[in-house]
């Protein structure tokens, strides 16, 4: 009798977490779901790149489930289970929204539809996993302190992806890099690093207490983080084919432009995730 009651209570709690997960999927997925370029990438994206993106997103989602899952899971198998639940939540919300928005209507082949959905499922699943942090009230301080140095770096990559993925598919991201001159590019890079360092300190990264010396904190967190941000941006731009046919200087410009939101996202990962 009491066991049945407890089970009911547990499923009720899980249903509430699931509801939050849908909210998170929408919150994070909506900007991309309502971006025209993202629908077109379903038509134009290289299948191999899409497959690589989906495969690399699995460990990323797993890491997110470990650090900030929508249920307080701390074991490996539970985190894996959460990843698949989040993917299911993402898949359902993306399909419903894209159908509702009329994106599917002119589409000819099922392959195109699959591409459109697959590309959107990953950000939506990220949102589902982050839901507990976005909507939940049960933030515990032990979660915050748990991440060690590799974990901090991972969170920075996730944060960079969080913002950069929203901006990368738009035409503006390309246009800005073509409009900028060399001095503007350098200034944007300096601004990215400066803001990143400031936010990292204000958001109270572990660096603050462990790396007492500001110079070593700058090298270990800000520079290391910015390097990872640039690599993350290179991966996203490569995925969208935005680096194809670009020379090295044009590639560097594109990286710095996308690296700006990436750096902000990475530095505020502690606030977002």
């Amino acid at each position: 009798m009491t066991q049945a009651l407890l089970q009911d209570r547990a499923s009720l709690a899980y249903a509430r977490d699931l509801g939050r997960a849908f909210g998170g999927a929408l919150l994070f997925g909506l900007p991309l779901l309502m971006t025209m370029e993202m629908w077109n990438y379903g038509l134009t994206l290289d299948g191999t790149r899409l497959a690589i993106f989906l495969l690399t997103s699995l460990p990323l989602l797993f890491g997110l489930a470990h650090f900030a899952g929508f249920t307080p899971a701390r074991s490996v198998s539970l985190a894996a289970l959460e990843v698949f639940a989040a993917l299911a939540v993402g898949f359902v919300s993306v399909c419903i929204l894209l159908a509702l928005l009329g994106v599917f209507q002119d589409v000819a082949s099922p392959g195109v539809t699959a591409g459109q959905v697959a590309l959107q499922v990953v950000p939506a699943a990220m949102g589902a996993l982050l839901a507990r942090r976005q909507f939940g009230t049960d933030r515990t301080s032990e979660d915050e302190g748990e991440a060690r140095y590799p974990g901090e770096l991972f969170l920075m990559v996730a944060g960079a992806l969080f913002l950069a993925l929203n901006i990368a598919p738009t035409e503006e991201a390309r246009l800005i890099s073509y409009m900028m001159g060399p001095w503007q590019a350098i200034a944007l890079m300096v601004l990215s690093l400066g803001l990143m360092h400031t936010i990292v300190y204000m958001a109270g990264f572990a660096g603050q207490e462990e790396q007492g010396h500001p110079v070593s904190a700058f090298i270990h967190f800000t520079l290391a983080g910015y390097g990872l941000v640039l690599l993350t941006c290179a991966f996203i731009l490569w995925l969208f084919g935005a680096l194809d046919g670009h020379s090295l200087p044009a590639t560097v410009d594109a990286l710095i432009v996308l690296g700006f939101p990436g750096a902000i996202g990475a530095a505020s990962a502690r606030l977002l995730i």
């Binding site: 890079m189 910015y226 390097g227 200087p249 710095i256």
Partner: peptide, 25 residues
């Protein structure tokens, strides 16, 4: 070593980008 390696990677990438931009400028 990991912190220094990652910091070093960041320095190399930042200086590399800077070099390419300056070379073009």
């Amino acid at each position: 070593w990991l912190a220094w390696a990652m910091g070093g990677l960041g320095i190399v990438l930042v200086l590399g980008c800077l070099g390419v931009i300056l070379w073009r400028a």
